[in-house]
């Protein structure tokens, strides 16, 4: 296992200027995540967890403080440089899946590689590998994504997050739109990617039940870290029966 941390946040502050009023959303957050960890970031709405997710995901930059992602400082980059970082180092899984509705599963999964300039045959080969890794049934590979159930769609999104071999998989409320049973399957997929393939996973949620599937839980409240501790009673999600 790599000793260098995947995420190293030092005193991250994010302030929004709105109509002449400064609102501090993050008030000095410091933590780090080592390679191979499965971390849940928890907090109620308005706690600043979404803003933290945007900064960790290189979608936004902090007002002050530094953020090292996989060893490189990404806290002062331009929009296009951030796009490069996202493409190379981060795999996103969103609450609303965000798939291209009338494209096949295979095309959805290989989409990030289009922007990496990978040739078509190579893209499909990598996408098939990612679908196998996330245990997605081959019978559905040529289906259009809008023909799938919510749980299946989220597993397509997980496979998509794997194709660029990211340093970090960042999941934002991945079970928020799913029922308990399919949510369980999605969580199982994350756990098997973490334990079976050594992927680093950061999961943002407001549900304690979901957070308990991680091996470390960070609680955020009012823009600061409340607690950051190991989860001794980690839940193990069950896959498809």
């Amino acid at each position: 296992m790599n000793t260098k941390p995947i995420i190293a946040c030092e005193n991250i502050v994010k302030t929004y200027h709105n109509a002449g009023v400064d609102t501090a959303v993050l008030k000095g957050v410091s933590f780090s995540v080592a390679a191979g960890e499965f971390v849940a970031i928890m907090g109620p709405s308005g706690s600043g967890k979404s803003t933290l997710m945007h900064i960790i995901g290189a979608l936004d930059t902090p007002s002050s403080g530094t953020y090292y992602l996989d060893g490189s400082d990404v806290s002062r980059l331009t929009d296009d440089e951030l796009a490069d970082i996202r493409r190379e180092k981060i795999g996103f899984v969103f609450q609303a899946f965000n798939l291209l509705p009338r494209a096949t599963v295979l095309r959805n999964v290989s989409l990030p590689l289009v922007y990496a300039g990978v040739a078509k045959e190579e893209r499909e080969r990598i996408a098939e590998r990612a679908l196998i890794d996330s245990a997605f049934p081959q019978a559905f590979w040529q289906h259009h994504s809008n023909q799938l159930s919510g749980g299946m769609m989220q597993r397509v999104a997980i496979a998509r997050s794997l194709v660029n071999d990211p340093a970090l998989i960042l999941a934002d409320e991945p079970t928020g739109n799913l029922d308990t049973k399919t949510g369980e399957i999605v969580l199982h997929t994350f756990q098997s990617l973490n334990t079976g393939h050594g992927k680093t996973v950061v999961l943002i949620t407001h549900e304690p039940y979901v957070a308990e599937h991680a091996d470390r839980i960070i609680h955020i409240r009012d823009g600061a870290i409340l607690t950051d501790e190991k989860n001794p009673r980690r839940r193990i999600a069950r896959g498809e029966s």
Partner: peptide
């Protein structure tokens, strides 16, 4: 938004 998140640049 998705395309930008997975690495598409402005161009």
């Amino acid at each position: 938004g998705l395309r930008k998140a997975i690495g598409a640049k402005k161009q």
